[in-house]
Design a protein around this nucleic acid. Structure first.
Lengths: 150, 150
DNA sequence: CAGTATCCTCGAGGATACTG
DNA sequence: CAGTATCCTCGAGGATACTG
């Protein structure tokens, strides 16, 4: 599992690949920065929230910022590293939207300016084109071999 | 945690938000479809792999396809639903690449045709433009409030 | 409010043995 | 090969009480 390929996915998962952590990040992306806000929103136990926030800070995904002096109070803000997780969150959310089977299909992610459902794209800045998943490679091998049966 | 907002992220996490499951999907995207290939690649215990593959099939992410008659043998292929997880995997991988601190920064995802590092984008097909994360909305609220401190 | 400290429980993960 | 069946262990998760 961790021999010659400490894959990038693995590294990401080590940092944010925990159920609560992902949910906490979602809350933070939604503008909740304080302990009690997040705790209340998620219904997570305090010791767990404390632990997860601590890890996020240790990993440089969030930072603890004092927002008040007396009494001393902190809030957690996303760093650039944390903010750059947005594609992950969006991809997760988008897939859930796309395939959810309950009636609540109104949760589709849309462009605020025009209301159209968004799309994901992977692009090559050099060629200035979209790239299909089967044309993405990592140094070692083809990352995504779509196709399969068809 | 599951009161009025069974968020799409939650739904996605329920299906694939498990450490092993994500790693199994990565293996499948790389073209490993057979039990032993995946088991060997990941070093996962057999009962767990069996359990995870079963769930993936139950959830319509993968399907069990017979590829041989005597003896009867099956392999697991991604369905459309499964294949549409590629943005999730790519986002996870991409973030890991971007922020990994070990020397192995050569794992960047590149366009196979030209070797340039890829970029992620969320696009509006109607406006034909890229959308910044703060301009994405779900029906209820702004999904990603970047900004924060600055 | 924003945590820390304890304690308890259940179940996920892993190993091993067995099977068609 | 592709699993299923058992069993054991450790630790994550949760509840509760306490604190600056």
């Amino acid at each position: 599992m961790d021999r010659d390929d400490p894959s990038s996915i693995q590294l990401t998962l080590d940092t944010v690949g925990d159920r609560w952590t992902l949910l906490i990040l979602r809350a933070m992306f939604r503008g909740m920065f304080r302990f009690s806000e997040i705790q209340c929103d998620l219904g997570i136990a305090k010791n767990l929230l404390s632990d997860r926030l601590g890890r996020l800070v240790d990993n440089g995904v969030a930072e603890k910022v004092q927002y008040q002096e007396r009494p001393v109070r902190f809030e957690y803000q996303l760093t650039d590293k944390g903010r750059s997780l947005s594609p992950v969150l969006i991809a997760l959310m988008h897939w859930g939207d796309e395939w959810r089977t309950d009636g609540l299909h109104d949760k589709v992610l849309v462009h605020d300016a025009c209301g159209s459902p968004i799309e994901h794209a992977v692009r090559c800045p050099a060629c200035n084109t979209d790239i299909d998943s089967e044309h993405i490679q990592s140094t070692a091998s083809t990352v995504v071999a779509s196709g399969g049966n068809s």
